[in-house]
């Protein structure tokens, strides 16, 4: 999902303190929440830092493809909604960075990991937003996929992450609905508008399915994450839920998923999809997507351009502090 890169392998180090670790696992099994100063295995902390910061980076980078259309939104209503949505995504990034910081990393550290390209973010944000219909599709599918993934994270064993997710989930529903509303409008519009909606769906469908990460047979990270109740459903389970939810939504407005193999299995009650191009997924995660370079270059540029503001604010705060001290003396 927003943390797909976690699905790459990591060497699991031996338990540092088996007795303590067993007590820790017992707390998790009892659905107790872990809070920042509690003892936790180093690998649990590391996994969470990576997962939460990757999630935060995804929210922040995700502002770019949609920000691209703010000035060109077709009406004031759409513009206000898109502006509010993009602002929310910035907020999501900030809640999540704050949650990551409770695990002992600094904001500067994680920011630097993103800017230097060492940290990953969701592959989905490396695709371009070519038409207005892309904005509808992102809200509908990308935020829809995010919701599927984020609802179980509201029960994550780590308290600060779970609390951030609850706040985020409350805000995501609007994102998805405004996106679907755009799609409904386009699908009921002129033939050109409907075609534009279908074209956007054609381009975003497969990357949306990839958001859930590699198939369960290839994912090496899930076991431990499941055991620690960071994760509660497998990649394939979440992907299936997403497909079952969205296919009827597409059909309702006369759009078709770009998958000739897509069919409803009467026996299981699920929609079955054709093969996903995991080579494309790997390529995009590794930096070879259509917009990877652009996203990171832009993020670095705005960060550098804001440096003087941060500096000036700190200098002003310092001056005020000195002035108050002087008055008090």
């Amino acid at each position: 999902m927003y943390t797909q890169a976690l699905n790459t392998k990591e060497t699991v180090t031996a338990a540092e303190d088996p007795a303590r670790e067993a007590r820790f696992q017992a707390r998790i099994d009892a659905e107790d929440r872990i809070e920042p100063n509690d003892w936790m295995p180093e690998a649990y902390r590391r996994t969470l830092v990576r997962q939460i910061s990757q999630h935060a980076h995804s929210e922040i980078i995700g502002m770019q493809p949609e920000g691209n259309w703010i000035t060109r939104a077709p009406s004031l209503r759409r513009k206000a909604a898109l502006l509010a949505k993009v602002q929310d995504e910035g907020g999501h990034g900030l809640y999540l960075y704050a949650a990551a910081e409770t695990l002992g990393v600094s904001r500067e550290e994680v920011t630097d990991q993103l800017l230097s390209g060492r940290a990953k973010y969701s592959s989905i944000f490396n695709y371009p937003t070519l038409t207005w219909a892309d904005i509808g599709t992102i809200g509908w599918l990308v935020d829809g996929a995010a919701i599927m993934n984020q609802i179980p994270l509201c029960r994550c064993s780590y308290g600060p992450y779970a609390r951030a997710m609850i706040r985020i989930c409350r805000e995501e529903s609007f994102h998805q609905r405004q996106g679907y509303e755009i799609m409904v409008t386009l699908a009921n519009g002129t033939p050109e508008q409907k075609e534009m909606a279908q074209d956007a769906l054609n381009r975003w469908w497969w990357p949306s399915l990839m958001m859930f990460g590699p198939p369960d047979t290839a994912s090496q990270h899930s076991d431990k994450s499941m055991q620690w109740k960071i994760k509660r459903f497998s990649n394939d389970e979440l992907r299936q839920k997403f497909i079952d939810a969205t296919v009827p939504q597409a059909r309702h407005i006369g759009l078709t998923m770009p998958d000739p193999d897509m069919r409803f299995n009467e026996a299981t009650g699920h929609w079955e999809h054709g093969p996903i191009d995991w080579e494309e997924f790997k390529r995009v995660i590794a930096g070879g997507g259509p917009c990877n370079r652009q996203r990171l270059t832009h993020r670095n540029k705005v960060h550098a351009e804001g440096a003087w503001v941060r500096e000036a604010a700190l200098a002003f705060a310092e001056k005020e502090r000195a002035r108050t001290q002087q008055k008090a003396a």
Binding site: L94, Y95, R107, A164, R167, A313, A317
Partner: peptide, 8 residues
């Protein structure tokens, strides 16, 4: 509610 970073 959470935390923020700010100069003052």
């Amino acid at each position: 509610a959470g935390s923020v970073h700010a100069a003052d």
